[in-house]
Design a protein around this nucleic acid. Sequence first.
RNA 1: GUCUCCUUCGUCUAGUGGUUAGGACACCGGGUUUUCAUCCCGGCAACAGGGGUUCGACUCCCCUAGGAGAUGCCA
Length: 509
Amino acid sequence: MTGSSGAGYNAAEGIPPKKGNRFMNVRVRYAPSPTGLQHIGGIRTALFNYLFARSLGGKFILRIEDTDRERFDSTALQDIYDSFAWLGIRWDEGPDQDGPHSPYFQSERQASYVAAAHELLEKGHAYECFCTSDRLESLRAEQSEGKSAALGYDRRCRDLTDEDRAQLRRENPHPVVRFKTPLEGDAVFEDMLLGRVKRKNKDISPDPVLLKSDRFPTYHLANVVDDHSMEISHVLRAQEWLPSTALHILLYRAFDWEMPVFCHLPMVMGKDGQKLSKRHGATSLIEFRRRGYLPEAVINYVALLGWAYDDSREFFTLEELEKFFDANKLNKAPAVFDYTKLDWFNGNYIRECDDTRLLKLMTPFVEDAGIRATAEQLQQALPLIKERMKRLEEAPELLGFLVGAPADYPAEELIPKKMDASHTIRVLEGVVGLLDGLSARSDEENEERFRALAEQLDTKLGNVLMPLRVAVTGSKVSPPLFGSIRLLGEEQARLRVHAALQKLKSMLG
RNA sequence: GUCUCCUUCGUCUAGUGGUUAGGACACCGGGUUUUCAUCCCGGCAACAGGGGUUCGACUCCCCUAGGAGAUGCCA
């Protein structure tokens, strides 16, 4: 890899997207840094990039921004692959999907950044800075204390003489390269979503670092160099990047490169209106997986964060989104992540899920909870709990009564309203007789028999079934009773009813 | 502090000068039902405020307020 003249990719001679023809050759990228787990906000950004590309017949590229070797985390890298594999989102070019602009790890493109930095140095758009981290730190401390107007680097090394530099290099042989932010003028660009955004150059970060002392680039440099060399046509990223876009504009200008089209997506917030973070709930995709969300629910919900198709439709498959996505329908305002609505989507997808697949998805959750159930049992249980689950993680608690004893419950739970213990005892004693052959009978038939029993005991059906339900499941809330007993087995049910009777009797003393 | 962006029901949103401001989640009622859930019906609830422009503003412009983000040898 020898920078712009290296083999493998051409950093300097990237073909600029043709003006007025931008949608003809759409190339977008998602550029995560492997420093942490994939955040749901990042997923949203990736999704929108992917959909944008797909809807326009363009290419979606994955680029790993691993220029911070101190925070690099290989689990985080794996998490990127796992996350998108789970979602079913694939890139056209990326680390594991070779393309014309390989490599797709920034750490492997280092030479091109060094070359780019040198180009800027030569053109007079950048300079070497010998200030130590310590000095910068104390500078920052001073500035924040004395609420001074100017924040940031004080440009001490901006106008060094050759002599100064030679001298300083002896003390610090590892200078950084800083951008020479113009003091006058403006940086203006046309955001696809936001329209014209203008910033005075003097308000832009004063001389940010482009090349670190370890010769790795900062985000600003690497991002611009790669977007250019990879012929990225559109940059869709979260609005938190908006402030640094002005700087990027200046960099494109300094390199004399054509700019991609920018589109700054609204951010994803927590309930309190702050950037979505751990204290709001799950934020990493893997947590959503672990809680039992289906990928299609996550995709569907997240797609609707800052985007809407029309005034009524809200269910979409990935394939449909690929067709319908339209950047013109993007919203500008930040969106609050609503876990409740995600649950609602997920419940819908669970209900619509094919039983075979659902069984497969559900099994690990059940097993992890220590429930010993055969595949057949689970299969039979499925229809009973399917429409009661919002998340797969709820399966174990819905099925809990199948394993070991039912949850312990107070004897009072057995007694329906307006009834007493002895009355309830009579009910349960009557119920025992109906247990025989219950499994073989249809629900309708069973219901008839219990109804008859209720009449005989001069009470309502509910007052017969509720004590039985509590006796069998340990709870007033359960999946349909007859089906549950069928799963449990008549014998086990009988034992539980007897246990319940004991409870009631000891209550009477 | 400075800069930038944002502002329709609690939340996600539709709306592109003339609408009883629509839908969804949540919530509250009611119905179906062996509990719960599902399902069905109904209800509550919004254009941040002030100026313009216009015959007419949620829609266009300005200001104010509020919110958010950025201000690193992190991305």
